[in-house]
Write a protein that binds this DNA or RNA. Structure first.
Lengths: 214, 214
DNA sequence: AGAGAATCTTGACGATTGTCAAGAGATCGT
DNA sequence: ACGATCTCTTGACAATCGTCAAGATTCTCT
């Protein structure tokens, strides 16, 4: 067992220094296992996520998790950080290319509906982890950072939308994100409950709302 | 062991028929244990709430929980329903007595700050349970009902606020609740993270927002 | 090819979990 | 006061949990 590695694992943020060379291979496997952890979290929720179930979603056995992570917490924290990158660029394409308010609005709503339809489990993972941060201080910094980047994402979309209409945004970034997030969470629950109209209800709610805000 | 009781426990909603008389005493103890469950959920979160820890917060031992509830799920569902009644009347007093927009706004913000300061653990319990409902369908009906009654509560406050200024509310009840809820959750996390300015930040955010909405 | 390091599997450990059965204690009608 | 019923405790169970150590396997470099 590599002693330098263990030290790196203990400190939960520094990139691990390997004895030999392939530090990328090591990190690649960490990411691979983090993805398995995210899949498990999305499937059964934080409360019922176990290391053995995570390992079962990877191509390894449960013992390997303690080779790449110091403990369960380290693994889940790493997964949460990895999750962050996947969220925040979802609407950048449509924001950059849309040439009218209508085009931006409809493109955004289309993407929004699609992500609820196809990634609902990933989204509920996020709300679960954010709730865990209310109890577990080790999650708070990461969760707050993700929240902030989502807020920024929403603000970017709305800024472009307002600019296309030569308008000003009427509310603060916090309030805007709170509004979007609260609505998203509500209709996500409806969608997961089997309500087939949930997505279109969210879309028409936002179609009414956005012109009022900016 | 009472067979009729067991049957009542199996069906998770019907009021249990007892062999003898004191059906109220039976329900009173259920409520007592549900309160211990809520205290545990507020303390450690859903993921780490165990029956033994719940019993430890009551004056009984863990075995009694299976006398009053068919299983852990039944207990937590019952606790969630009991929780509902405690939330929705918090602002009724100030809504009824306030004689001006200013008085209502400041009274509301005062109560809001107070409940974050003194009942933060209870509030995080709610966000945890609502996240669990995204995974566990057995929670969904209760959670949706509680969400609705909170939405109604917010709408009542805002309606009164708008009426005192002879104005109309500019948004839908869903959007209004989403906005309040999203902001509340954000600043609750800040408050629990040790940010002593979180409450006043929420208050000034709402002070700016409410006059715009109605 | 062979030595040594890196990677992964296996199996075990102590602790904790939900559940339940057996029985002790309390309470009630008679 | 006694017997029946309700209430609660105790202790056990099988399962599952995170963790870790020992060893098998694979990879890498000379």
């Amino acid at each position: 067992m590599n002693q330098a590695l263990l030290k790196a694992k203990a400190g939960r943020d520094a990139p691990p220094r390997r004895g030999r060379l392939p530090v990328d291979k090591f990190n690649a496997r960490r990411v691979e296992l983090a993805e398995a952890a995210l899949a498990t979290l999305a499937d059964v929720g934080y409360a019922r996520t176990s290391l053995r179930e995570i390992a079962q979603k990877s191509e390894f056995t449960h013992g390997v998790l303690h080779y790449y992570f110091s403990d369960k917490f380290d693994l889940i924290c790493c997964s949460v950080r990895y999750y962050k990158a996947k969220c925040v660029t979802r609407y950048d394409q449509i924001t950059a290319t849309a040439r009218s308010r209508e085009e931006l609005l409809e493109g955004f709503l289309e993407k929004l509906g699609e992500t609820i339809r196809t990634e609902a489990h990933m989204h509920r993972l996020w709300y679960d982890l954010r709730a865990q941060a209310l109890f577990e201080s080790a999650f708070r910094d990461d969760v707050t950072a993700i929240d902030k980047s989502l807020e920024d994402m929403v603000w970017r979309i709305m800024s472009r939308y307002a600019a296309l209409g030569d308008k000003q945004i009427a509310v603060s970034p916090e309030a805007l994100y709170a509004l979007f997030d609260g609505l998203f969470q509500k209709y996500l629950l409806q969608h997961l409950s089997g309500d087939t109209d949930a997505i279109s209800a969210l879309q028409s709610e936002l179609r009414r709302l956005l012109p009022m805000i900016g």
